[in-house]
Amino acid sequence: MSHSLNIPLIKILIQKDWYLSRKLLALYVGGSIFALSFISLGEWQFFMGVTLLMSMVIGLANHLVTSTIINERKEQTLPFIMSLPISPTDYAVAKLIANKSLFFIPWLAILITTIGVFTFTPIPDGLIPLSIIMCSYLLLSYCLVWAVGMIVETEGIVILVMVVLNCLIGPLIYILGSIQDISSHFQSATQVWNSASIGVLLLEFFLIIASLVIAFYLQARKKTFL
């Protein structure tokens, strides 16, 4: 598109998505605080709390894509939005910021909490690189789901991608565990970053950037938007 972005309207659309997602957000914020409050109760409660927290982040991510992108098409509110003075690129930018900001804040909170828990508890700090790689994977999954949602706008395909990406969490931990350079430091008292762990992290960030760039490129090239 040859015009510059319609910033005021993008802002309004972002606020609109935040506002429409408020109940969803409240649900996941409440759930996350509850999960957090479970963590310090004991050993099995720790694992339950952590699992619940992860589920909250994954759930929020997927729920947001479904409710703000897929449902907009499915429930036919997209023609209403596209009748406003925006271009498809404006629309994609608004969706990007609205979704990513809603996801990024809880994601960052969890990343910081995780690092904090490892640093200040007897759990070996050697697990920090693994945790950061896994947290980044959650971010990557979210970006991929978002990109697929923006490009295909089909519920079935998006759900398929969500399922596949969530299924890959287990294998990813397994693969990381089998990389000697990474797994040999799990039990060490300090975190160790070497070429293997940094490489995986960089790959994740490359894929995150790539998914966003591709989504925007295809969005701008769409010949039929509705």
């Binding site: 605080i33 957090l36 409050s37 479970f38 310090s40 109760l41 909490t113 828990v117």
Partner: peptide, 10 residues
Amino acid sequence: DSFLPQLWSF
């Protein structure tokens, strides 16, 4: 006073 919110406090 823990940084992890405490269920009993809620």
